[in-house]
């Protein structure tokens, strides 16, 4: 059996000015509800509607990312899901990692990887070129030929 002795951090509560825990808690619930819609909408459009899973190729994705509706959709999905996941991961770290230094290191790693992914993801969504120069016309969206 595992044994757990004294709490890792002794009671020494000092009140700080800003308290984000309540907002974090609310965020998880609110984003959760929105993400249900975003994720299932995403899955339905990609995997079920039209020709289903067979339709997915570069052209399909490129087509979606020229439509402002899907740009907003995917941006929301990216930000809400990543922050939701990272915040969840943060609580897991808090629950399971007891050494303050390791905890701080993991929090840092988590925050920085989340930031990097958000930036990269956002860049992809907004700087995506659906018709790269010199690409095989077979692979890109049909509207590229009209450009």
């Amino acid at each position: 059996m595992t044994t757990i002795d004294a709490p890792r951090t002794p009671v020494n509560r000092t009140r700080r000015g800003v308290n984000l825990e309540k907002w974090g808690w609310m965020y998880m619930r609110a984003s959760g509800v929105v993400l249900v819609v975003l994720i299932f909408g995403h899955l339905f459009v990609n995997l079920v509607a039209g020709e289903g899973v067979k339709q997915i190729d570069f052209a399909f994705v490129a087509g979606k990312l020229t439509d402002p509706f899907w740009i907003v959709w995917d941006t929301l999905l990216l930000w809400l899901a990543l922050i939701h996941g990272a915040n969840g991961m943060r609580t897991l770290v808090n629950d399971y990692v007891t050494k303050p230094k390791v905890r701080a290191a993991l929090h840092f790693a988590l925050a920085s990887s989340t930031a990097v992914l958000l930036i990269l993801g956002t860049l992809v969504i907004y700087t995506f070129d659906p018709c790269p120069a010199g690409a095989d016309p077979e692979l890109v969206a049909s509207f590229c030929s009209t450009l």
């Binding site: 709490p7 890792r8 951090t9 002794p10 509560r13 629950d95």
Partner: peptide, 9 residues
Amino acid sequence: CPVFWTDGQ
């Protein structure tokens, strides 16, 4: 409480 186990605060 697993939260209390790791966080005595």
